[in-house]
Design a protein around this nucleic acid. Structure first.
Length: 579
DNA sequence: GCCGTTTTCGGCCCGACTGTTTTCAGTCG
């Protein structure tokens, strides 16, 4: 749905990057960035809007509206094509390295002719950066670290990027005559945080038309392999998509096989062997007679092995097979179980939608309650003030219950300072219905210092949720170094929830940490951290991540009825401090 | 380039931190 919006936003962002690298007007570059954000976050499909309608989108003026129209009409923007000629594509890749911005990238290119990440790595190794103005030993170290981080993520793409492509493929192939079923499988269906390639399955008697339609998709740039049963392509984003076509009666076995993981499949196959059976993507067969005993649905296949249907997000061989055999699989939390979202923004700070727009969109999701949590003043660029916050609260109270009786909570996203202090004193914090508190700065403190600041935040009687607890950015920044077990224990002790932030670049906490944290009896909040109305949908990735952490609805505070949630939000120790 | 207006150009998200420098540029949130 929002895909054309994201597409044109990426184009404008690229133009903004190129303007910054070539050292043009910084405000012009910023203007393109703002427009990109506004278009990505716009609820309506911008590819269907004319220039006049586009100009009505905030931060989109005549010039950018024209470029957007040109992009959807011609598939290109002349000014961007021009800019691309003056800066090699590899130079723009350089700014993806943490600690390396447009200025330094341009210096590297102009002075040393470096135009790719590999060339930069080589230049550092051969000490060619020595003596270059602005590049000291510490910078070299930081760049090497950044390059390592970038390479570690390799060719994998964020979950959200892969999902958008996969859903488009599934929608297109579902329309092909003869396609009986179509779905994505693989690590995407398991909701892993990054995706190497996308697996799509189709059930059809004749694979021809489906394969043809697949290779003809507009974003396909390369056909890697093309056969009757399997076709692989590469997309404009460099993502590989594998399509497998199966007979309809093998659908269940195929979905089991291609959803994986490999370790899960090995484990399940061992059980089959033990029972004198053989499992392949075409079905479960009796080893002796060769007769097919199950294949039509996943439930059939698992049932014949003495297993209940296992949610895809659990299929990692992390104990789910044993739990299934013992009848002890968790009843994992689902999106439908969410009654509200506890971390969202508006255009009062860095969101692109108004309070009214966000509230209306949230009510359409069927939420019973919804929290507005704009940034607090210590994130200086947001220019928050007490007066602005109080005025917003007044407006929130007016809107409370107006849309489908959805109840509104007025909150804030506090900043956890280096010493664990937050933006406002207790008296002011007491006026909020809930407070999320997050780390937005000082990522390089010592382990002890990081742990201390998080513990102090947990112990603050007004802090209800620790937002994106490790502050990691996938492929960009590892999480802060803290004794998370101490933090988990503190959360459990103080009645502070840990957030599972659904932003695809964050997914924080991640599944491994959730699995650990739940041992402490911690509660969690699955939030979108939305900065636009389409952004509210990010809870889907948060829910997927929560499932991967084996969480049930009871573990997640925003599945609870409002009354129970409000009790949780009144932390112990509040009365003494509230004065 | 966008916005808002004091209607035609001036201001635009501001401050901290890092690493480099020797007084500050670049990057980040």
């Amino acid at each position: 749905m929002a895909r054309p919006n994201d597409e044109v936003a990426a184009v404008l962002q690229e133009y903004a990057d190129l303007l910054a690298i070539t050292g043009g007007d910084a405000f012009k570059s910023r203007a393109y960035e703002k427009a990109a954000r506004a278009l990505a976050g716009h609820p309506a499909d911008v590819s269907r809007m004319d220039a006049k309608a586009l100009r009505a989108v905030p931060n989109v003026g005549a010039s950018i509206a024209e470029k957007v129209v040109a992009y959807f009409r011609d598939g290109s923007v002349p000014e961007l094509d021009q800019a691309r000629k003056s800066v090699p594509a590899g130079v723009r890749e350089l700014v993806a390295i943490p600690a390396l911005g447009p200025k330094k990238a341009m210096t590297l290119y102009q002075d040393l002719g470096i135009s790719s990440v590999d060339e930069l790595a080589g230049a550092i190794r051969s000490e060619r950066l020595r003596g270059l103005k602005g590049f000291g030993p510490k910078t070299e170290e930081n760049l090497l670290h950044g390059i390592a981080l970038l390479r570690q993520s390799g060719q994998r793409v964020p979950l959200g990027t892969a999902m958008a492509v996969a859903e488009e493929v599934v929608a297109a192939l579902t329309e092909v005559p003869g396609c009986e079923r179509c779905a994505y499988a693989g690590s995407l269906r398991r909701m892993r945080e990054t995706i190497g390639d996308v697996d799509v399955l189709v059930a059809a008697d004749d694979s021809g038309p489906v394969m043809e339609a697949f290779t003809a998709l507009p974003f396909v740039t390369e056909i890697v392999a093309h056969g009757a049963k399997k076709t692989s392509v590469r997309t404009t984003e460099g993502l590989q998509i594998d399509l497998r076509v199966l007979p309809a009666d093998a659908w269940g076995a195929g979905m089991v096989y291609f959803t994986g993981s490999k370790a899960h499949n090995v484990h399940v196959r061992q059980i089959a062997v033990r029972d004198g059976l053989k499992l392949s993507e075409y079905g479960l067969f009796d080893t002796e007679s060769g007769e097919r005993v199950a294949s039509a649905t996943e439930e059939d296949v698992y049932a014949r092995l003495g297993l209940p249907w296992i949610p895809p997000t659990l299929r990692e061989d992390r104990g789910e097979v044993a739990a299934g055999l013992a009848g002890e699989l968790p009843d994992v939390v689902t999106r439908d179980a969410l009654r509200g979202d506890l971390h969202t923004h508006t255009d009062l700070t860095d969101g692109v939608a108004t309070l009214e727009e966000m509230v209306l969109a949230a009510s359409r999701l069927g939420y019973a309650y919804y929290a507005v949590t704009d940034h607090a003043p210590d994130l200086f660029m947001q220019r928050m003030t007490d007066a602005k916050m109080l005025a917003q609260r007044e407006r929130v109270r007016e809107l409370d219950g107006r849309h489908r009786r959805m109840r509104l909570l007025h909150g804030t996203e506090l900043n956890i300072g280096p010493d664990g202090a937050v933006d406002w004193p207790p008296q002011f914090l007491a006026g909020f219905d809930l407070c999320v508190a997050s780390v937005h700065s000082h990522f390089a403190l010592s382990r002890d210092a990081q742990t201390r600041r998080l513990l102090r935040a947990c112990e603050n009687p007004y802090v209800n949720v620790i937002g994106h607890p490790t502050a990691r950015r996938l492929g960009k920044r590892t999480g802060i170094d803290a004794d998370l077990d101490a933090v988990f224990a503190a959360c459990a002790r103080t009645g502070t929830a840990l957030e599972i932030n659904g932003q695809p670049e964050r997914l924080d906490l991640g599944d491994e940490e959730i699995l650990r944290a739940r041992q402490y009896g911690v509660r969690f909040a699955v939030d979108s951290d939305a900065h636009s109305t389409p952004g509210l949908d990010y809870v889907r990735y948060g829910v997927g991540t929560a499932q991967r952490g084996w969480l049930t609805a009871d573990d997640v505070i925003n599945t609870w009825p409002l009354r129970k949630l409000k009790r949780f939000l009144r932390k112990e120790g509040r009365e003494e401090t509230s004065g």
